[in-house]
Write a protein that binds this DNA or RNA. Structure first.
Length: 316
DNA sequence: AATCTCTCCAACCGCAGTGGT
DNA sequence: CACCACTGCGGTTGGAGAGAT
């Protein structure tokens, strides 16, 4: 028989992490750094398996993680990258270092998949082609970029500065945990959970100065609803992407090699994705579109994202 | 107010990959 | 080369909360 699951040992706790456990884990990692997960339960006395500790850290506690609602820009990135890379969430997350692969995966499964399906249904009523999925993702991501750009011009704020509405109220970073730790020292352990929740509230209020919550909601609703007119506009883009596809098929090599680094890295991922998936035509189309974005300046948004949202290193 | 249904997301599970011996 | 320990990744699940009835 195979080896038993790592967390099946007697005495290994399962289920949600308590604030106390988080504090222990974060304190240990702050002291010793992440890694050598095997030793973490032993040295901390946590009744968790090493794997669980690592996951808790990478998905929830490590610094630089952004929680809460995804901006339209991020949605566009995810849709676009999913079309390029498939369900390689870790690879997608590497372009959005503030988001974890788990977060992105969850968001895709709960929100974006539905949106795309909805969009695809709408597409099917307009098109006779049997396979519109690749085009659909392309169009949606394109529309998100457009909407993001428009809305950002209105607010003069990069998406990364936007309100983090909703989402978890529990500690989300070592900074928060440090504050949580202080509160925990002051209060009884039982009260720490509530304290942790309240600790995070001011953060939201700070951000609330940037954009009113109802504005965000309105933006999100704009993204949810795709009007007939928008659909027509997007369909007109489809012809452009088809041209790009043809162009990319006939011109697979890049003659001048003058693309910026962001696109270089994207291209390498695309190439890798091509190799792995063997699903070339839609990807080439999307890749071409990505590269075209550089020429038209939209790649700047990607760069902004990597500078603004992705300032935290992806490796810990 | 009580119950049911749905949605969301943190956490788990199992497999694959990697490096050391 | 084989084995083992460890880590990383993607799919899936279960519980909590929200909304509907």
């Amino acid at each position: 028989m195979g080896r038993p699951p790592c967390c099946d040992k007697v005495g290994i706790k399962k289920g949600p992490w308590t604030p106390e456990e988080d504090i222990i884990l974060v304190s240990y990692i702050q002291e010793h750094g992440p890694g050598n997960w095997r030793s973490v339960p032993t040295n901390t006395g946590l009744l968790r398996c090493s794997k669980s500790c690592r996951l808790r850290w990478t998905n929830y506690l490590r610094p630089g993680i952004k929680r809460g609602n995804f901006t339209p820009h991020e949605e566009g990135m995810i849709i676009h990258l999913q079309a390029l890379l498939g369900n390689r969430w870790a690879a997608i997350a590497s372009y959005l270092p503030q988001r974890t692969d788990n977060d992105i995966k969850n968001y895709w499964n709960t929100h974006l998949k539905k949106k795309i399906k909805k969009f695809q249904t709408a597409m099917d009523s307009h098109m006779t082609t049997s396979d519109t999925s690749a085009i659909t993702s392309n169009l949606i991501s394109k529309s998100y970029y457009t909407q993001t750009r428009n809305s950002e011009m209105g607010t003069n704020l990069p998406s990364s500065f936007r309100l983090n509405t909703g989402g978890s109220t529990y500690a989300s970073s070592t900074e928060n945990i440090s504050r949580l730790l202080e509160g925990w020292m002051r209060n009884s352990p039982k009260a720490s959970s509530k304290a942790a929740q309240e600790e995070n509230q001011p953060q939201s209020n700070e951000n609330a100065n940037a954009v009113a919550p109802n504005q965000i909601k309105a933006e999100q609703e704009n993204c949810d609803i795709i009007s007939h007119e928008e659909l027509e506009n997007l369909l007109s883009f489809e012809s452009l992407s088809s041209m790009a596809w043809e162009k990319s098929s006939s011109d697979s090599t890049q003659p001048d090699g003058s693309h910026n680094t962001a696109n270089d890295s994207l291209s390498s991922s695309v190439d890798e994705a091509k190799v792995r998936s063997g699903n070339q035509p839609p990807f080439s189309c999307l890749e071409m579109w990505l590269l075209d974005e550089a020429a038209t300046g939209q790649a700047e948004e990607l760069m902004d994202l990597s500078l603004d949202c992705c300032s935290a290193p992806a490796i810990f």
